[in-house]
Write a protein that binds this DNA or RNA. Structure first.
Lengths: 348, 348
DNA sequence: TACGTCGTAGCAAGCGCTTTCTATCCGAGG
DNA sequence: CCTCGGATAGAAAGCGCTTGCTACGACGTA
């Protein structure tokens, strides 16, 4: 029925072992023999049986990339960069590595499921992107799973996610706290005193760090931390829209809105505009991440640029063992404040 | 070293066969025995060896989703929808299916490579999204590969891609031609007579169909098809920006710019604005796809909404055999014209 | 001429699971 | 009380590949 190694071997008049070695190129084979084998492979249109190969070799070509939301360019950009470092030659049997991205939808359960699935497939490496969920028992379960993976020889890299101590993983963390602090400092520097903050889902590290950075800046400037000025939501546009209306309801005198990310900021802009407020004359808006569309917003968004592609590429290289690990297995990636049209001096 | 089925069997005092049956749930096992096995699985923290399982069963839990550009929400949204129909319970051994998205970067070679990799992994199904490349020899090579896959029992579904005859695949094609025609008709109806068109890469079916639809509308209205009014580029913002400047250089009297997609349209808006032109007073702009950010553009984008999530979900269900195939294995998905602020009556 | 060496290729033992076929135990029916 | 069928469980034969070890010829060297 299907063509196997043995068929190729028979046709090339060699042993299966030789065919395997030609395919894997990890053992000397005479040029003439190799030719003969490759010819047979071609003629029979042979495709290696991946599962059989992985079983015998106790490893696979699979590399997993976990993302929270594949429809969000934030993750798409990272995944793309990671994948382009991981894909390409280097897989088993002269093949390519299969970089697969797994969409967790932000669900802790799915994250764990995918991790188990990748473990089951004996993945060569796994890269986890995006913030982690801090709530128990998920956090410990993930940590335990990561440890299992590294112990089994799977390289684990965290990209844009805080370090997971004692798991054997390498972390490239974003400096969310610092970025948020500088962003808020910028607004305070412009004269803003009444700032609303639209945070992401409470249980995520990214949310907490950005919020902490914001509050640090507030405190440093001697401004009060009014809990009524913070609203939690999701990392999407709709959430930003609704949260902004809520903020306005609580305090119509806000002069600035700091959003958890750019999508949220866009929603905030829409809500402000519909409320008859001009940006930045009446209210300044700031985002986070600097996704491609942010510069096209009108006015263009003041935000913190995260080097998503660079970090992803580096994570990919580390996962492939092509770049040295940072000292202690931990590196922090800083964001850059991008001051643009959506932030300005407050009225009055 | 690693825990195997046999270890679990020993601990549960049953045979490996029984453990396998408990895990797969495809054979009656007494409740007490099942309990004992599951307990052992748990205590030993056993994880099935995927490759071994796939080898023995001659099939895997893998489902591939091919996308052109994972950083582009157009594909992200489809991939997300496909994946959410495919993931979840239903995999082998009580596990979940592993829906993996493969980023081809729009390269025909990578597309073929991924297809081979998925074939090698004995994927249960493959969903290809986005337009195809028509140039030979790629087109035939892909068709041949798709045929191989279906013959080997892998279900193949094309989502937003024209049908591939005689390959055994199911196609959910977008009506790009009709959408583009209606969009251009809308502009002509507003009074536009000098329309620029920014097309995608020439070799792609999507590009050709949209361009044909545009020209159909032009012809139907008795307007000339000036080749100088069409510029080819890529499906991204930068391309739209540059192409618009080029169009303006060729004919400063344009009253409307139709873009290959929304990202391109955004780039066009930026270029027009920088050229001192107002939208839509001086020049109308239209996009295609209606991605989430399009409604946030200022003015919001007139475009053609493609039901990406719905089509993706349907493709996913068909790939899983949970939805009947359309008659003839082919269905056309229409887009909906969304008239918004970026299109208006031309000056004069 | 005899012997160690190097370069190639084959043998065969798994890798860890699935599944067919067979064995066993039990209760029910005759 | 014996037999038969149904429900469970086990034995064992692979699935298609990799790889350690062995075999063998052709050289170069003593």
């Amino acid at each position: 029925m299907t063509v196997t190694l043995a068929d190729v071997a028979a046709r090339a008049q060699v042993s299966p072992a030789t065919v395997s070695r030609v395919l894997n190129g990890n053992y000397p084979v005479a040029a003439a023999t190799r030719e003969r084998v490759l010819k047979a492979v071609d003629e029979l249109d042979y495709v290696l049986n991946g599962p059989a190969s992985s079983l015998a070799a106790a490893t696979s070509d699979l590399v997993g990339i976990l993302v929270n939301d594949i429809a969000d360019p934030f993750f798409g950009i990272m995944a793309s960069a990671i994948q382009s470092e991981i894909g390409g030659p280097g897989g088993r049997a002269g093949g390519e590595r299969l970089a697969v991205v797994c969409n967790t939808g932000g669900s802790p359960e799915r994250e764990l499921t995918y991790l188990t699935l990748l473990q089951r497939q004996r993945a060569a490496a796994v890269v986890l992107t995006g913030g982690a969920v801090e709530a128990e028992p998920h956090a410990s379960a993930v940590a335990a799973k990561l440890r299992k993976l590294t112990e089994a020889g799977t390289r684990v890299v965290l990209c844009g996610r805080p370090p997971a101590p004692d798991t054997g993983s390498v972390a490239l963390a974003f400096d969310n706290r610092g970025g948020a602090r500088r962003l808020t400092e910028h607004l305070i520097g412009l004269g803003h005193r009444r700032l609303g903050y639209i945070a992401g889902p409470e249980e995520r590290t990214t949310t907490r760090h950005r919020l902490e950075g914001h509050r640090e800046a507030l405190t440093a400037a001697g401004l009060p931390q009014d809990p009524r000025r913070t609203v939690h939501g999701r990392y999407d546009r709709t959430s930003g829209y609704e949260a902004t209306l809520e903020l306005l309801r609580r305090d119509a005198d806000l002069t600035a809105v700091v959003a958890a990310n750019d999508s949220v900021a866009l929603g905030a802009c829409a809500a402000l505009r519909e409320s008859g407020l001009r940006i930045p004359e009446d209210v300044s808006v700031a985002g986070f991440d600097d996704l491609p569309f942010s510069v096209d917003a009108v006015p263009s968004l003041t935000t913190v640029r995260l080097p998503l592609a660079e970090a992803g590429a580096r994570a990919g290289r580390i996962a492939m063992g092509r770049e040295e690990q940072p000292p202690g297995g931990i590196a922090t990636v800083r964001g850059e404040l991008m001051v643009r049209g959506s932030s300005g001096v407050p009225r009055g």
